[in-house]
Design a protein around this nucleic acid. Structure first.
Lengths: 342, 342
DNA sequence: ATTTATTATCGAAACGTTTCGAAACATATT
DNA sequence: AATATGTTTCGAAACGTTTCGATAATAAAT
């Protein structure tokens, strides 16, 4: 026997098709009596409306598009994968499915527009990571609700979910201070990078709140990037100055690892002589000796927040352009365990 | 200006709507002349058919459902996540989107049927891991193409993508043999587990092919599970017998790790005195000392194969019920590096 | 030149809903 | 009792395609 349609329900309940539609969509203005009559018919026939038919009639798809650039996706660190999974999970709670796609970094207006946009097959779009400006523009022109995750572009007034870099850095430095450190260095690499700048601000704020004055000898922020060698060089530079800090906050784990490398060469013990904490909580943190303390970004939560936001936009037919900061977690490992705790 | 429809194209090209449809769907029996005329009109108007409209008319969705149980999904090891990503990537190549969902392990016929099935919103289904039998049944009744990944149930004659356990084990043991080992142990835990049984077969086959006779003193397969303690106990048992193997193949990495633990207690050096290789290539392999050699399963490829199979089924309107074995990779790390190679 | 087979195009129905304005009904107001 | 007001139900159009049987145009066979 074929799958029943709304007509079958209407017939069985002895009402019109439109009335059945009203109760399916939980519109008011249906009397209790006919409502229950219809609900019984629905149960009886085991009826469930087809997504595609309602879609055509209501200009609605039940899908949310998720876009990231191909390079972001194939990274070793599953950063964006986790964001995606967070989105996926949250969307499902609200009865939306996620259509995932990647776009080439070298975006081509003619060829790389995601199919779900051309086919009008999504009700909103979530974009993760640095994404082509032109693409953002196109989506805005389509008047779809949009939110960016872990990226922001001031040219557009879109909503965004961003890492709370200031707060995360603050947590890291605060942790060091509570472990009785007073001479705390900062290795930032490239301060032009917006998130590094924020982390530097968090560092300074933590010091200030604890009445510790900033010692420029402990700070290196003039490099060109934020890689392992950068951390290595920065540590070297600090050591050269003679006045050694007892703890280092590196603005990411890569630099923290470079930094540890240099210290090990000098046979400086971690954390006894110099404690170290990084930022990002990458997998390598527990492969290095001693295990590296770090600040963890709640990636799944970032994705979930994004989903929640676009769902609200869809429901309210009103675009939001709020920037939301996702919380961070302090992860304490051996590299900052104070002696007294060992 | 509104998005153009097929009618606009027909009007501009001075043909009927149905003819336009024919060229969109690349049906034959359209003369070259009118075909190009229509194609020009399509370009001109920047027309792209709406997925949802074609869906309603053609009883087709362009979606593939991906189902796994909730417990599988939240595992620490991102095994199924990787399978999913492989599926996703391959499906996109064929112009399908994946709708992901989880079902509760304690499946409830009334409540836990995935929404995309009720809504008739997928053209085929991929299921990963051990999935409720009743659910498989339901999907088969719907006559949707199905494939199972990393699971098989003989009650149904579905297609399946499975790990090539025999070949993987063979690779592992063969590697040990080529490293000049002749006394090779097998730690299997629970032989009732089908994949363990297969790995045991691969072990025996490798020995046989190299004219090494099986020494029962080196084999432990009578435990109840396949965990770290099992590996620990098994190693203990083997050591007690006095006749020590020079290498161990553990049927999974967890047992291999337990095994290493016991050896370390005895101050037996790995790999100098006893080499060890596991199976699964879990993350922990590179957190343990020495790093554990293992057999890697190509998870993304498993997902991709599954996608490819269901797409073929959809295209050919013909169900397949073939079992496909996914290849494995030998990953050599410190735990089996022969001395000569150091 | 006429009939037959083949190819190209078309018109209209169908797919299964939602939506909108009108009709029917019920209740309150005069 | 008649009118106004509010609530519930309905019929029909609309959404944008595909599909199918019929017709028109062309080529092949007699």
């Amino acid at each position: 026997m074929k799958k029943p349609t709304i007509k079958d329900v209407a017939r069985l309940a002895q009402v019109s098709v439109s009335t059945v539609s009203l109760v399916i969509n939980e519109k008011t203005s249906v009397s209790e009596k006919t409502k229950t009559k219809i609900q019984i018919a629905i149960k009886e026939l085991n009826y469930y409306p087809r997504r595609i038919a309602r879609g055509l009639a209501s200009h609605t798809t039940g899908n949310i598009g998720f876009i990231l650039t191909d390079d972001h996706f194939s990274l070793v660190e599953p950063f964006y994968t986790k964001i995606f999974l967070g989105t996926e999970f949250e969307a499902r709670k609200h009865n939306y499915y996620i259509l995932l796609t990647t776009v080439p970094t070298k975006f081509d207006q003619k060829k790389s527009i995601p199919r779900f946009l051309l086919e009008k097959n999504v009700d909103a779009v979530i974009m993760a990571g640095r994404v082509p400006e032109r693409l953002i523009e196109i989506i805005i022109e389509m008047e779809l609700p949009v939110i960016l995750v872990d990226y922001y572009n001031r040219r557009f007034k879109t909503a965004a979910v961003l890492i709370d870099n200031i707060e995360g850095a603050y947590q890291a430095v605060n942790h060091l201070i509570h472990s009785k450190h007073k001479k705390i260095g900062f290795i930032g690499g490239d301060l032009k990078h917006p998130s590094i700048a924020d982390r530097y601000d968090g560092y300074k704020k933590a010091l200030m709140d604890n009445n510790i004055s900033l010692n420029k000898n402990f700070v290196v922020t003039h490099e060109l990037n934020t890689s392992i060698p950068t951390g290595y060089n920065a540590m070297h530079e600090i050591l050269k100055k003679g006045d050694w800090p007892t703890a280092i906050f590196a603005a990411n784990d890569a630099m923290a690892i470079g930094c540890m490398k240099r210290l090990k060469e000098e046979k400086i013990r971690i954390p006894e002589q110099v404690a170290i904490i990084g930022f990002d909580d990458i997998d390598a943190d527990i492969q290095i000796e001693p295990h590296l303390s770090s600040i963890r970004v709640k990636k799944e939560e970032m994705g979930a927040i994004a989903a929640k936001q676009v769902v609200t936009m869809i429901k309210n037919k009103k675009h939001i352009s709020e920037k939301i900061l996702a919380p961070t977690d302090l992860i304490v490992r051996a590299s900052t365990k104070s002696n007294s705790n060992l």
